[in-house]
Design a protein around this nucleic acid. Structure first.
Length: 299
DNA sequence: GATAGAATTAAGCAGTGAGG
DNA sequence: CCTCACTGCTTAATTCTATC
């Protein structure tokens, strides 16, 4: 009954609950099957199951409760958020790797450099206890690196990279990519944030991580080819994505975002499978880039 | 590496209370 | 007023940790 086993058990409960509401027998059957499959002791008493439900609520933020009308356990929809999908994914990976962490030869991971995930846990700790961090940061455009002392506020993921959101020495809001941090130290110096920022609101209208306060939120309308459209539907570009037209020929979507470098880069990455319909300013920006490509101009 | 003691984890049981 | 989910408490077992 190791910690890992209870985590596996709890993720199985969550996965079952996500598929459909279930009763005790169904869960017991599932755990019995999984017990053989994974060669771990997973079957539990009803008492432990109830304790697990409490743990799941606090650990994953997913509330599973009993519905007397159907006599089934189900997830309370308002309590579960998409954020926890990541946690579930992580535990799934943990199971694949096994306790000894060896990668089977039939799993081929994308080869990439370290993306700084090793800093995640110290930074999370620093944010929680409000301690300053000192980082050695490698700039993209310089050979040299700089040392900074920062007040960490939050972590944000974008396109498989992690960024730490901070206030710098002058209490200015700054974002740093974890993959460019060469060294990190949590200082034994606490701070009280000079301002509280509602990050969900802060990033709601932003594509990417750079938020230029002054630029307005605009309605961006994009049309994709049918093939690309399927991809965009399954992996929305932005939470604000709405489908305006999906007729089997093309897919037209609307985003409500600020127009910035990262949005343009995203659009260009889809090549000739996307068309900018609005606004005119974005159309012009993309056209300019496209013409530069055509004439082999780099800027 | 072994061992003792501490800490964690789960089971069982009894009692409570909500829903029908 | 009956059933069954749920909770608190105790006990047993297992895992972790510190120490030699």
């Amino acid at each position: 009954m190791s910690k890992l086993e209870s985590l596996i058990r709890q993720t199985e409960i969550i996965k079952l609950a996500k598929r459909k509401p279930f009763d005790w027998e169904t869960l017991d059957d599932l755990l019995t099957r999984k017990e053989e499959e994974l060669d771990r002791k997973l079957r539990i008493s009803k008492r432990t199951f109830h304790r697990d439900l409490v743990d799941i609520a606090s650990l994953f933020g997913i509330q599973i409760s009993f519905d007397f009308k159907t006599a089934l356990y189900a997830i309370d929809p308002e309590s579960s958020s998409e954020q926890h999908e990541k946690l579930l994914e992580a535990f799934d990976m943990l199971q694949v790797f096994g306790p000894r962490g060896k990668t089977p030869p039939y799993l081929l991971f994308e080869e990439r450099k370290a993306i700084g995930t090793e800093y995640l846990s110290p930074i999370i700790h620093a944010i929680k206890v409000q301690k300053k961090i000192q980082i050695q940061y490698e700039k993209y455009w310089l050979w040299e690196s700089e040392q900074r002392i920062l007040k960490p506020l939050a972590l944000k993921e974008f396109k498989q990279r992690w960024y730490v959101l901070t206030l710098d020495e002058k209490d200015k809001f700054k974002v740093f990519g974890l993959d460019r941090i060469k060294e990190l130290q949590v200082l034994n110096e606490t701070f009280t944030p000079s301002k509280t920022i509602d990050f969900r609101a802060y990033f709601r209208d932003v594509f990417g991580i750079i938020n230029s306060e002054e630029s307005p939120v605009e309605e961006v309308i994009l049309t994709f080819t049918e093939f690309k459209g399927r991809y965009i539907k399954s992996l929305p570009l932005h939470p604000s994505q709405e489908i305006l037209l999906d007729d089997g020929q093309v897919l037209t979507i609307r985003l409500r975002v600020k127009i910035a470098y990262e949005l343009i880069a995203e659009i260009l990455s889809h090549g000739d499978e996307v068309r900018v319909d609005a606004p005119e300013r974005l159309k012009e920006l993309v056209r300019e880039k496209a013409e530069n490509i055509l004439h082999s101009i780099i800027k």
